[in-house]
Design a binder for these strands. Sequence first.
DNA 1: CTGAAAGCGCTTACAG
DNA 2: CTGAAAGCGCTTACAG
Lengths: 329, 329
Amino acid sequence: MITINDIAKLAGVSRTTVSRVINSTGYVSEKARKRVMAVIEETGYVPSQHAKSLRTKETKIIGVILPKISTDTSSRTVNGMNSVFEGIGYQILLTTTDLERQKEIEHLRLLQNRQVDGIILIATNVDQALVDEIKSSKVPVVVVGQEMSGVPSVIFDDHAAARRMTELLIEKGRRSIGYIGVDEADRSVGVQRKAGYLEAMAQHGIEVEDAWMEKGDFSIGSGYEAAARMLETSSGKVDAVFAATDRMGLGAWRYIRRHGYDIPGDVAVVGIGSSETSRFIEPALTTIEYEYEQAGSVAARTMMQLLQGEKDVSDKKVLDFKLVERDSV
Amino acid sequence: MITINDIAKLAGVSRTTVSRVINSTGYVSEKARKRVMAVIEETGYVPSQHAKSLRTKETKIIGVILPKISTDTSSRTVNGMNSVFEGIGYQILLTTTDLERQKEIEHLRLLQNRQVDGIILIATNVDQALVDEIKSSKVPVVVVGQEMSGVPSVIFDDHAAARRMTELLIEKGRRSIGYIGVDEADRSVGVQRKAGYLEAMAQHGIEVEDAWMEKGDFSIGSGYEAAARMLETSSGKVDAVFAATDRMGLGAWRYIRRHGYDIPGDVAVVGIGSSETSRFIEPALTTIEYEYEQAGSVAARTMMQLLQGEKDVSDKKVLDFKLVERDSV
DNA sequence: CTGAAAGCGCTTACAG
DNA sequence: CTGAAAGCGCTTACAG
């Protein structure tokens, strides 16, 4: 392996000088710079990041923890972050928990050991253990997708989005609106969205029946099952199904079509997330679109503020949403 | 920051001993080990990977270059690699080129600077510049998805898969089979699949008309456009469309349905890749399923062989495929 | 404008 | 079973 010492020797200067030309710091004569550059070019030398980091305590790497890499959500968020980091010489180190909660904590630790400069976590829960781990982190952490008091977070207005969607359904004349939610450990999806739905229903004086409330686990299959239970127990009384996520909405959509109901004639189906498949099916799913790219870039910019030691970094940025009305209502 | 020296002092031993208990190497008395462990526990000490790597020249990190993170293909491949690496203490550093070819080379360089132990590249082309970069790499490189002579690669049998699919269409009585391919810089998708299609056609004595051959760019939209051109110029003569990828197949599917044709009554549509959406639409798309998880795990295992300096690592592993017949034929 | 020297936090022969 | 010392490849005051 070729090192800074080799370059120094070949260029006939000290390694201090080589370091200076590499980093363009301090004074270096034009002649020395030229010679060093030439040698670097010839040899294809690249400085060891480890040695450098060991000295400077900086890695220019931001660790990103994703729940799942295969989703639109993840890729769009990462793209948003990339757009900010790329220009300023930062790199992203991606890890994925594959939806295992325990791994969020594990990866938080692993990334710190790798000496990343900061960590952006796309969170799926607000467990106390997670919050504790974040608060005791040596490096700045920015959370996306969940609100955590005292931790800089970028979130969507899940409550308002769900309320708006429910109102659309009510405007369209639906009254018996079933809801497919998820576990409440996920505050954003499990709690906020449900609250938005319930609030809209209450405001319009519609009493929500027990049989209308179902729960899934984010998967398409669980949406299918939930729709089945809902339509069986309330014996076809439901005239709309609101799924907290597009994937579960897709499952519900499939159950409903398979069992001879017309969408939206008999039952309307809506989701949240604007996935590719939701746009593609016929009738296309009405959904809420979140600006994931923006979430990514806002998170990245927040991280940079933290890294630059800015004091007044607000610990909560709420992003907008857009209602996308399609054929399923 | 707390270092190995602090631990040594607190535990009343030398840092050599601390190093030994951390890495479980050499002899350490039970008493010393206990004391050191206790101190590590209390302080929450974690060794600096940079310092460690600087000494050992090992990082236990494998860099992975993905063309796009949002696809099923990518996530399944990464999962396959994870299943191998997780057990043996290796971590994955993910980067994405977002389909820009130049970035494959750039990332190859960046990862080497980060001193990863090896690089797995999910390749989209076999440009000479790329091959050169790979061959001059300081660390082992394994390529997935493209055949590169002299470079260990894991590939699918694209030629056989396309031929098999074409034969299915012919068995079903189709004769005028249109083909939507991609640029030939991509040997696997652009060249091999087309060759398989052409071979099957030739073997069955069907002459392929110019108007049946179209080209797209992997996107859904390009499949739509290609189908449009195909059905217009050959004035409805085509009775099947074979798209080299599911996404383009989806586009074709959409065009065909929108223009009043029945699938599969008037036109059959098939793809390759087994994407989620392809399964979900009605009629569901007939496709080829590749074992991406297996590709990932095979690539990971090949990497480990390379890292362990094994001599007889075959530089070409060809994976199987499965024909998934659904409603679109 | 340039270089010698110290030091970042580890591991690993070597000697005991 | 244990420790002193050298060294991995850099950067950065400090002195000239």
